[in-house]
């Protein structure tokens, strides 16, 4: 009984779309999550950290976030997620919303 922390980095595809400011989106309700996006200057990679009570979905998380990064061309930021059993569809939705918030 402990929280699972999943950490990985995604290399950008070289398009180097960077964030101008940080953004927060979502509530950790049942089947939902919160996303924090923060620009970082150290390197161009996207560092990802997911905290979740659900084990065994590491590969799925990776697919969803990789797809988001590929779709948006983002680089040089950290993505921090607190999850409470959100479906991949909700994860993708919140990531998009957080990005819209950061760009809005």
């Amino acid at each position: 009984m402990s929280l699972e922390t999943i950490e990985f980095t995604v290399a950008g595809d070289g398009r180097s779309v960077s964030l101008s400011r940080r953004a927060h989106c979502g509530v950790v309700g049942s089947g939902d999550l919160e996303v924090l996006l923060e620009p970082k200057t150290a390197d161009a990679a996207v560092s990802v950290r997911i905290v979740t009570p659900v084990k065994g979905f590491d590969a799925l998380w990776k697919r969803v976030v990789e797809h988001f990064v590929a779709e948006t061309g983002l680089s040089g930021l950290s993505i921090d997620i607190n999850d409470n059993n959100a479906s991949p569809a909700i994860v993708a939705l919140r990531l998009r919303q957080a990005l819209a918030e950061a760009q809005g």
């Binding site: 659900v54 979905f57 059993n85 479906s87 991949p88 569809a89």
Partner: peptide, 8 residues
């Protein structure tokens, strides 16, 4: 349908 239902 959503691609994932209740309880993922």
């Amino acid at each position: 349908a959503e691609t994932f239902g209740e309880g993922r």
